[in-house]
């Protein structure tokens, strides 16, 4: 054992272990190191550019995503919601709602059914000067849509007896209320009642506190037992929040210019 120890030490001290150093060895190593550094810097730069582009694309997609969510509003009975798989980007949408101080989205996001929409009424309190804006769309139905087009969506239920003004009420496939949708022969859909389970993009719905409603929609105007929020869109429409002074008892979307009294 000691012999091998000694032999190993002797071997590793042997001059024959020396390796000739070529004259350009140093410069070759230095050049190689600089090349590696440049390559790494280029890779890092490329990664940074890709990351920035990706982030940009992501940000540009977030807003349409929120609008899409509103456009995809379904007639919102619980059973319908349960058969609708939540979009894969639920968390993304939630973040958007939270980050965006004044989401201009009307209607009721279907994510509300899953309880994933972040309550943002407190954040909305900072939007006192915000003008509400959102398309008057609920699921596949839209305010102003003709009766024929509405029937094609398959979202309407049974028709009721027309009113004296000639406005025809319909239930919807998810809401048995016979007057969920009111359609004027001249103006198209003039009213859509939201189900109790539905929430607006600002998380207001039946059962919400009036204080929360006022925080979410500072522009809400009192009209008898209703709070009315003007929505900027084409065609113009309003949210009508009926309430008992403490809580919201029902929500409906109403065409601003309509010829159906009591809509």
């Amino acid at each position: 054992m000691d012999d091998i120890d000694d032999e190993l030490r002797k071997l590793f001290n042997d001059d024959r272990l020396d390796v000739h150093v070529t004259p350009d060895a140093t410069s070759s190593v230095v050049r190689g190191a600089q090349r590696r550094r440049r390559r790494r810097a280029a890779a890092t730069g490329t990664f940074a550019v890709v990351a920035v582009i990706g982030a940009g694309i992501g940000l540009t997609q977030l807003r349409p995503l929120a609008l899409d969510s509103a456009d995809d509003l379904l007639p919102t009975s619980s059973s319908t919601a349960s058969t609708t798989p939540p979009p894969p980007s639920v968390s993304t949408y939630t973040q958007t709602v939270t980050v965006t101080v004044d989401p201009p989205v009307g209607g009721v996001p279907n994510t509300a059914q899953n309880g994933t929409t972040a309550p943002n009424t407190t954040k909305s309190s900072s939007t006192s000067t915000t003008k509400e804006s959102a398309p008057g769309v609920f699921g596949r139905l839209a305010l102003g849509m003709s009766e024929e087009d509405a029937l094609k969506t398959g979202s309407l239920g049974t028709a009721g007896t027309p009113t004296e003004a000639g406005c025809k009420p319909y239930s919807s496939v998810s809401n048995a209320d016979p007057s969920t949708v009111l359609i004027s022969s001249a103006k198209g859909i003039v009213r859509i009642k939201l189900p109790d389970t539905a929430r607006t993009s600002k998380n207001i719905g039946t059962g919400s506190k009036v204080t929360d409603l006022k925080n979410a929609y500072p522009s809400a105007a009192v009209n008898g037992s209703e709070l009315v929020v003007q929505m900027t869109a084409t065609p113009a429409w309003v949210y009508v929040f009926e309430n008992d002074g403490t809580a919201v008892t029902s929500v409906r979307m109403r065409l601003a210019d309509n010829d159906c009294p009591g809509a």
């Binding site: 060895a25 190593v29 230095v30 190689g32 190191a33 600089q34 090349r35 590696r36 550094r37 790494r40």
Partner: peptide
């Protein structure tokens, strides 16, 4: 030696 020194040098 070349490979390691290049990495270390970078």
């Amino acid at each position: 030696v070349q490979s390691v020194l290049e990495k270390v040098g970078s």
